[in-house]
């Protein structure tokens, strides 16, 4: 029986990836809160996580160095545009309060994923030491 880190870590490694991507999007929204014509974007977490997991299960062997790498996890996470609550005259659709709330929520969820990963690592370590 071989030890697979992918299996041991489960969904949490993918979740962390998607969370960090979402953090990046939300931070971009906040950074562009005053930019005319900027449209706020976000990702559908459920769809993105599903895609990240799928991407991992599909492996394509590259037989030539010029071949493009496919099946990379995270490539299918298409950002989507937010439906604005109160669009402004300058074409900006960022609602700073909402983005901030989403950012904090996502940061906490990121920490939760980190905690889960830590627990998995602790479990692995205990298994390896065999105490």
């Amino acid at each position: 029986m071989s030890l697979s880190f992918d299996k041991a870590l489960g969904i949490h490694a993918d979740a962390l990836q998607v969370r960090s991507r979402r953090l990046e999007l939300l931070a971009s929204n906040l950074a562009n809160a005053d930019t005319p014509n900027y449209k706020a974007r976000d990702i559908d977490f459920r769809a993105a996580l599903g895609h990240a997991q799928q991407g991992q299960s599909v492996t394509v062997t590259r037989t030539h160095s010029a071949h493009l790498a496919v099946g990379t996890p995270g490539l299918g996470m298409e950002p989507q545009y937010r439906v604005p609550n109160q669009p402004s005259l300058d074409g900006n659709t960022v609602d700073a309060q909402m983005e901030q709330a989403a950012f904090s929520q996502n940061a906490i969820q990121y920490q939760a994923s980190l905690d889960f990963l830590n627990a998995r690592f602790r479990g692995l370590r205990t298994a390896l030491k065999g105490e």
């Binding site: 991507r21 971009s28 562009n32 990702i43 490539l75 996470m77 298409e78």
Partner: peptide
């Protein structure tokens, strides 16, 4: 289409 970071 896949990038997410947009500086100002």
């Amino acid at each position: 289409p896949h990038s997410t970071a947009t500086p100002v």
